[in-house]
Structures are given as C-alpha cells and as structure tokens.
Design a protein around this nucleic acid. Structure first.
Lengths: 96, 96
DNA sequence: TTAAACAAGTTTATAAAATAAACCAAATTA
DNA sequence: TAATTTGGTTTATTTTATAAACTTGTTTAA
C-alpha cells in the first residue's frame, strides 16, 4: 500500500541538497549552504551521509588558496531521487 | 528558496495516516494499522500527535462491546496537508 | 466458571536522527 | 602580528521515531 520512503532522502536538508544537485549537476559547499540556509555543521554531516550512500560524489579541491568542496549527484543518486518522488506520490494522492 | 516542511507531516507514518484520512474522511484504528502496517504502539503515538496538533479528530466509541477509535481529518489538517504538498513540490523540481 | 488467548489500545524505554555548538587550520585584513 | 574571516569537521545535545512491555476488557475452550 504505502511504499517505504528512502530514509536518506526523507530528510528536509538532504532532500534540499539533492534537489539543488539535480538541477545544477555541480555545486560548491558555500553555495549549497546559502541556498539551504543550513548551518555548516549540519550540512557537512548530511553531505557525508549522501556521499557514503553513493548518492553524491564530493571532490575536495582548491580555489586559489582556499579549500573548495564540490558536490555532484551520481546516477545512483538521481535514480534514488526519482524513485523517492514516485513513492511520495502514493502518499500525496496524486493521480487518483 | 526551500520552504520548511511541516515536521508533523514530514514523517512516513503520520503522512500515511493523513493520506488515508484525506481519501476516506473516517477510519478506525485497526484499519489504519492494517493499511500502514504500523505497530499499534507507534500508530497510537503518531495519532496522538496529529490529534494534539488539531490535524485530526479522534472519537472513542464502542462497536458492540469492543472499544473503537475513529479518526477523521479536520479542515486544519486538510489545509496543512495541501500546504505540505505545495512545499514539497519546491524540493521535487516539479513544474520547472 | 475460570483459565487461556485475543482485541484494542496506551505507556514507557530504546534506538536512531537531526541539529547546532564547539572546534581546527589556513588565509586575509586591520 | 593580532584579530577576523573562510571553509569546513567533530562532537555533544536534543528531538524523533519506533517497538517492547503493559493494561483493560472480551471471547473461547476446558
């Protein structure tokens, strides 16, 4: 009846991060922080979780002399995001 | 950018309960339990929270000699559910 | 007729999650 | 060169979800 909602995506901040990455395909930590209005600590933790699950990939480089963390969505992450949307629709009574 | 997702609705079980009530307008505890596949304890707690928020109303009656708990969605609850859906759409990149 | 099992929940204890506070290192600015 | 800022990470705390244990009353079987 009601499919499980992927707990990794069913989180306000992680969902926002994924949402950003779906449309941009690449975003830097400070940009994500600004767009989501999250604290750096919270964002760091949630990015780790998405990364550990293979939903995003995280590249640590430098921008001039400053460290720069770049995030991208992976095919696995995109698939999970799409599946999550489908599952949600069951709950939202869309298309009934 | 990303609106807050009502924490009362952003919960798998509570969302499932609300989803059922939106379509049925009235449901008994055992029916909700069966449809959501929740444990009685978890369901009881979540129904309390929805009730405390005024999202549903809970009527305790008897069906013959057996206690019978009936749940109905309230106008407040329906509004919250609809607002939640709108907020979610921001995250799901629907209609962009 | 009473002991065992069942129904319908509730209360409480535990596990998991979200979140922010505190922290660190390097770079910039005053 | 001391203070501030940038770009984060680690850790501690709070909140939340969830199930286990319990309660109350009912039906069933012996």
């Amino acid at each position: 009846m009601f499919p499980t909602l992927d707990p990794l995506l069913h989180s306000e901040l992680r969902l926002a991060v994924m949402s950003l990455l779906v449309s941009t395909e690449e975003a830097e930590f400070p940009y994500i922080k600004e767009q989501t209005e999250a604290t750096a600590g919270n964002l760091s933790v949630q990015i780790d979780k998405l990364s550990a699950a293979g939903y995003i990939e995280v590249e640590k480089t430098f921008k001039g002399k400053k460290p720069c963390t770049i995030c991208r969505i992976t095919p696995t992450g995109l698939k999970a995001f799409e599946d999550y949307i489908q599952a949600l629709k069951t709950y939202l009574n869309i298309g009934k």
